[in-house]
Amino acid sequence: MKNQWRIIIGLVLTLMIVIFAVLNNMNVPVNFGFSQFSAPLIIVIIGSAFLGAVVVALVATGTMWQQRREIKQLNQQINSLTKDIDKKVADKKEELEREYNNKLAEFKAAQTVYPTEEKIKEIDSEG
C-alpha cells in the first residue's frame, strides 16, 4: 500500500512537470559557464528533471548497497554469536549433567545400607 502511494505521487509530479514544460515552450539561453546555447524551455525542463532523477537514483542505489552490505555483515555477526551461544549452552549442559551424575552417585553411596553387627550375627546363625 505504501509503495502504491509513492507510485501515484510520482506519476502526479511527473504529469505536473510535463504540463509545466508544455506551457513553457519558448527558446531560452542556457549558460554552463564555459559555453552557452539556446534551446526550447520544454527540453531544458525535461532534461533537468531527468538529470535530477538520475542523481536521486544514484544516491538511493548507493545507500541501498551500503545498507545491504551492513545487513549482510550483521547477519554474519548474528550467526557467529548464535553458534557461540549454542556451544556455551552445550558445554554448560554437559558440566551440569556431570555435576548431577556425581551428586547422584554420592547420594546413592550414602544411602547404601551396610549390615550392622547384629544383622551379621543373625545371618550367621541362620546359615
Results as ranks from 00 to 15, higher is better:
residue 107 F to H: 01
residue 70 E to N: 14
residue 110 A to H: 13
residue 53 A to V: 05
residue 56 V to Y: 05
residue 43 I to A: 14
residue 70 E to V: 09
residue 49 A to R: 04
residue 68 R to Q: 11
residue 93 K to A: 07
residue 104 L to N: 07
residue 103 K to A: 09
residue 98 R to V: 06
residue 90 A to E: 15
residue 70 E to L: 14
residue 107 F to T: 00
residue 31 N to L: 01
residue 67 Q to E: 10
residue 88 K to S: 04
residue 28 V to K: 01
residue 47 G to H: 09
residue 112 T to M: 15
residue 23 L to T: 05
residue 81 L to K: 14
residue 24 N to F: 11
residue 29 P to K: 06
residue 25 N to Q: 10
residue 68 R to E: 08
residue 89 V to N: 14
residue 87 K to Y: 14
residue 96 L to R: 05
residue 86 D to L: 09
residue 38 S to T: 12
residue 81 L to T: 02
residue 51 L to T: 08
residue 69 R to M: 03
residue 53 A to E: 04
residue 48 S to P: 01
residue 80 S to Y: 11
residue 92 K to N: 15
residue 54 V to Q: 09
residue 97 E to L: 13
residue 71 I to A: 12
residue 109 A to I: 02
residue 103 K to L: 15
residue 110 A to W: 12
residue 73 Q to T: 13
residue 72 K to M: 07
residue 42 I to G: 00
residue 29 P to M: 05
residue 58 L to H: 02
residue 43 I to R: 03
residue 86 D to C: 02
residue 38 S to P: 01
residue 94 E to A: 14
residue 55 V to P: 00
residue 111 Q to M: 10
residue 75 N to K: 12
residue 104 L to K: 15
residue 42 I to D: 02
residue 65 W to S: 07
residue 66 Q to L: 01
residue 92 K to L: 15
residue 25 N to K: 06
residue 107 F to K: 00
residue 50 F to S: 08
residue 73 Q to L: 13
residue 42 I to R: 02
residue 83 K to D: 15
residue 54 V to W: 09
residue 28 V to C: 00
residue 37 F to I: 10
residue 82 T to L: 09
residue 64 M to N: 06
